[in-house]
């Protein structure tokens, strides 16, 4: 598959008739990365499938306004993150219920999920991650699984690098604590 630089894609976008072609390239190039990012937040494949489609629709709608100030991948991960958080908000049972409660319910579905192949320790790690506050969880996933740089995570979440480092440190401690006690 031919790889395109962000600048090449932006150049193609200057021609409206090439928009569908650019979107096809984007889907082909980034669908797995975006899907796994969403999946680690939502756990369920069915939910992730809905959200990835909404994410691509949002990307399609807003692509013309992308000016290349950040990397295209960072911009798309931001959209995927926001769509996932919006989706979780819709799952709240009432307006005052904290998002963390929704995450705890996700934990119940972890092994009931059809497409979960982890062993006992992988399951425990996911359970531990699900106990983190939602933004801390997203940050942890991006740093730990996706090995993203703090600078990039900070652009996605709109948080300072210092706060992210502290967050990651707290998340690690909480996860270690959880694993010791379960």
């Amino acid at each position: 598959m031919q790889k395109y630089a962000d600048s090449e894609l932006l150049e193609m976008l200057k021609f409206p008739d090439k928009k569908a072609q650019v979107m096809t390239i984007i889907v082909r190039t980034y669908q797995e990365r975006l899907y796994w990012h969403i999946r680690k937040i939502l756990i369920s494949h069915e939910d992730s499938n809905d959200v990835i489609q909404n994410t691509f629709i949002k990307i399609h709608q807003n692509l013309q306004s992308f000016k290349g100030n950040a990397k295209l991948s960072t911009w798309m991960i931001t959209i995927a993150t926001n769509e996932s958080l919006q989706f979780l908000k819709k799952k709240k049972r009432h307006i005052l219920e904290p998002l963390e409660n929704v995450a705890l319910r996700q934990s119940d579905h972890l092994t009931a999920e059809n497409y979960f192949s982890g062993d006992e320790i992988a399951k425990k790690l996911q359970e531990a991650i699900l106990t983190l506050p939602i933004k801390q969880r997203v940050a942890f996933n991006m740093k730990y699984f996706d090995e993203m740089k703090y600078e990039e995570i900070s652009k996605v979440l709109g948080t300072s690098v210092g706060a992210l480092k502290a967050n990651y440190h707290h998340a690690k401690n909480k996860i270690q604590e959880y694993l010791k006690n379960h």
Partner: peptide, 13 residues
């Protein structure tokens, strides 16, 4: 891989 313990149905992507 970076997918954690998750999988997708065959041919999903």
């Amino acid at each position: 891989n970076l997918n954690g313990p998750f999988e997708v149905p065959e041919g999903y992507f």
